[in-house]
Design a protein around this nucleic acid. Structure first.
Length: 428
RNA sequence: GUGAGUGUAGCUCAAGGGCAGAGCACUGGACUGUGGCUCCAGGGGUUGGGGGUUCGAAACCCCUCACUCACCCCA
């Protein structure tokens, strides 16, 4: 085979492509019903934007970005995630302004140069929703509810919601010191990576999954116990709000975001049914990000859903959205040369009237035409021969029931209407 | 980037040093205006690629590529 798709990217063929589209549509609808409006963002940006927003020392920026140069030599990158672009666009077009509240969502492919694995691709899809301009805990609750209720939990097997608080610039530095103290005391019990991170990014140490580190990390001081009154209150109100909504969650003290402009609430939806990549949606509050990217003092909270992961989970649970109706309504088959122009006219008029129709032209045997119609998912087959030509009719057979009728092809609205109505035998 | 497992027809898989096969799918026929069934026939392969061992390699050895899963990281 001379050419094949690059590593880690997938061709999506029918029927999966159709189901994938339905799932994307459903997510779009869910966000739309919660008041989010779609923003269409470019697939590449200045590489520097991602370095600044995601963080210089993250794996994504250090080794996973697809980098390339523009003609002028500027450094560009395929987007590894959506939030950075969205914030950039919001600042650029004055949607992120102090005092203004904006709900936006995006959907589309993201690119990370990682080793492919179950639920992990080099080109994958995310749908994300962001609320800019609100620091109200009820907006955290509402955002979480949107996913938990509607995209969600009930349709995803073995799914759990984890939440935690990252604190704020007032209280996190204090906690960080306490944590570093603790980690240094237990230095000898930690793995190589954790020792390094104790110095570079102590909060991330809590994320370590190496078994030998677990006892130390489990008994590490919890950030929520060191929150300042304001952060404490924000977190309590989010938790109470979720309880009030009847959304169950677990406070996970080990759930962290490594970067400073992530503040207050962090949350993740995980499922054990997914393999090693257990997170299928994640989000949090980022009250410092807009300012960090050169905008005003505008708080924000957002999340992203991994569409492939959601797809896998819902496929497993049998809860993918169902395809409505047949792929093709009517397959038209001319039985002789003279009927071909007639067939084209009928196809055109059906399509004009909103009916999906295909022509079956290449088959010499009627049996083959039937088989082809079925293969294309047609509901009806329409036959055109000498009789039909001379009387201006078409012989239509409902493939599932075998019920057959002869219908006039003029006016075209009549035929379209008949094809949409329940197909029962004519009274004798 | 590291590790393990797997690569044979379009798909699912046999053959474990001695003729590369089956089922499904595909094409044609039985069957020229009425399908799904059945029967018959046919096309399809440098056994992922390269090198080596051997009289002989799909099989054994080395290299390489790809896929899968895991580490790592994350959606």
């Amino acid at each position: 085979m001379k050419y094949q798709a690059p590593r880690g990217v997938k061709d999506l063929l029918p029927p999966e492509s159709e189901l994938f589209r339905l799932l994307e549509d459903e997510v779009r609808e869910v966000f739309g019903r919660s008041g989010f409006r779609e923003i269409r963002l470019p697939l590449f940006e200045s590489a520097d934007l991602f370095a600044r927003s995601i963080g210089e020392s993250t794996d994504i920026v250090e080794k996973e970005m697809y980098l390339f140069s523009g003609k002028g030599g500027e450094s560009l990158a395929l987007r590894p995630e959506g939030t950075a672009s969205l914030i950039r666009a919001a600042i650029e077009h004055r949607l992120a302004e102090p005092g203004r509240l904006e709900r936006l969502f995006y959907q589309g492919p993201m690119f990370r140069h990682e080793r492919p694995q179950a639920g992990r691709l080099r080109q994958f899809h995310q749908a994300g929703a962001e609320i800019l301009g609100s620091s109200d805990p009820d907006d955290d609750v509402d955002l979480i509810a949107t996913v938990s209720r509607h995209a969600g939990i009930s349709r995803v097997p073995a799914s759990r919601l984890l939440i935690n608080s990252m604190g704020c610039p007032e209280c996190r530095p204090g906690y960080r010191e306490i944590l570093v103290d603790y980690l240094e005391k237990n230095h000898d019990l930690l793995c190589e990576t954790c020792r390094r991170r104790t110095k570079t990014n102590p909060l991330r140490v809590l994320d370590c999954k190496i078994p030998s580190c677990q006892p130390v990390l489990e008994s590490a001081p919890h950030l929520v116990e060191f929150l300042c009154p304001a952060s404490r209150s924000h977190f309590d109100r989010v938790c109470r709000g979720l309880e009030g909504e009847g959304i169950s969650f677990t406070v996970s003290h080990r759930l962290v975001r490594g970067l400073d402009y992530y503040t207050e609430t962090a949350f993740e939806w995980v499922s054990d049914a997914l393999g090693a990549q257990s997170t299928w949606a994640a989000g949090g509050r980022y009250n410092g990000l807009v300012r960090h990217l050169g905008g005003g003092d505008v708080p924000g909270v957002g999340l992203a859903i991994g569409i492939e992961r959601l797809f896998l989970l819902r496929e497993l649970a049998g809860t993918l959205p169902q395809k409505a109706g047949a792929a093709v309504h009517l397959a038209v088959h001319p039985l002789e040369e003279a009927a071909r122009p007639y067939a084209h006219r009928i196809l055109a008029s059906l399509r004009d009237n909103g009916i999906s129709a295909v022509g079956i032209f290449g088959q010499t045997r009627l049996k083959k035409a039937f088989l082809q119609a079925e293969r294309e998912g047609a509901l009806f087959i329409g036959l055109l021969g000498g009789d039909e030509l001379s009387t201006g009719t078409i012989t239509i057979k409902h493939l599932a029931t075998g019920i057959q009728k002869s219908l006039p092809t003029f006016p075209p609205e009549y035929l379209s209407k008949a094809l949409r109505e329940p197909w029962t035998p004519d009274p004798v």
